[in-house]
C-alpha cells in the first residue's frame, strides 16, 4: 500500500488513466493495453519477487519497447531480467546524490536529497548506464530502450521524476 498508493496519487494528480496490478496477475492483455509501465517498490523485508518463478513474470520487459520505470525493487527486477547481479547495500533514510547527466528532469552536477529504503542494489554494466552513484548505482537507464531504474523512492520528495517519466512519448 505505502509503495503503490503514493505513485497512484501522482498519476491521479496528472490525470493519467492507470491500472494497478499485482505482478502475479500480469498477462499479455493488460500489458498490451498500457503505453507505459511503472514497477513500484516493496518493503525491506519482502524479497519474494526475486524467486526465479516470480521473476519470470517480468520476462516481458525484454520483449517490449514501452517505457518502463522501476523503483527500488523495480530497479532490482529490471537489472535481474537482463542478467544483472544484486549485491548487499543497506541505505535507509535521506541520501545525497549527484547525477552526472540530466536524468528524468533531475539537474546534473548538484546535490539532490533522496529517500532511500533498500537492502540491495543492482549492478548491470552490460545493459545499463549509471547516471548517479552513491555507494552503489542510484539511477540507471537501459543503453537502447526507455527503461529507467531508480534505487531511491521518488514518490518521497522527488515526485517530478515520475512526472517526467509520464511525459515520455
Amino acid at each position: 500500500m505505502e509503495f503503490v498508493k503514493p505513485i497512484e496519487d501522482i498519476l491521479k494528480n496528472n490525470k493519467i488513466k492507470f491500472k494497478t496490478l499485482n505482478y502475479k496477475k500480469l498477462n499479455k492483455n493488460n500489458l498490451e493495453s498500457s503505453d507505459k509501465i511503472i514497477i513500484c517498490g516493496t518493503s525491506l523485508a519482502d524479497n519474494d519477487f526475486l524467486k526465479k518463478t516470480n521473476l519470470k513474470k517480468f520476462d516481458f520487459i525484454k520483449y517490449t519497447n514501452k517505457p518502463i520505470l522501476g523503483i527500488c525493487a523495480g530497479m532490482h527486477i529490471l537489472s535481474s531480467i537482463y542478467g544483472g547481479k544484486l549485491k548487499k547495500q543497506k541505505q535507509i533514510g535521506p541520501t545525497d546524490i549527484i547525477f552526472i547527466e540530466e536524468f528524468l528532469s533531475m539537474e546534473p552536477n548538484r546535490k539532490h536529497q533522496v529517500y532511500s529504503l533498500h537492502g540491495f542494489y543492482a549492478e548491470n554494466k552490460k545493459y545499463f548506464k549509471t547516471y548517479s552513484f552513491n555507494a552503489c548505482p542510484q539511477a540507471i537507464k537501459h543503453n537502447s530502450k526507455e527503461i529507467y531504474g531508480i534505487l531511491f523512492h521518488p514518490e518521497v520528495r522527488n515526485k517530478k521524476i515520475v512526472e517526467e517519466f509520464l511525459r515520455i512519448k
Binding site: M1, E2, K5, P6, S43, A45, K90, G93, L117, G119
Partner: peptide, 24 residues
Amino acid sequence: IYQASRIQKICDKLKLECFNPLWQ
C-alpha cells in the same frame, strides 16, 4: 522522514516488517 527512517532501521535490525499505511 525523520520518524519513518528511524523506525524502519529498528524493524530491519529486529527482522520485522514495517507497515506505514498512511505514508505520503
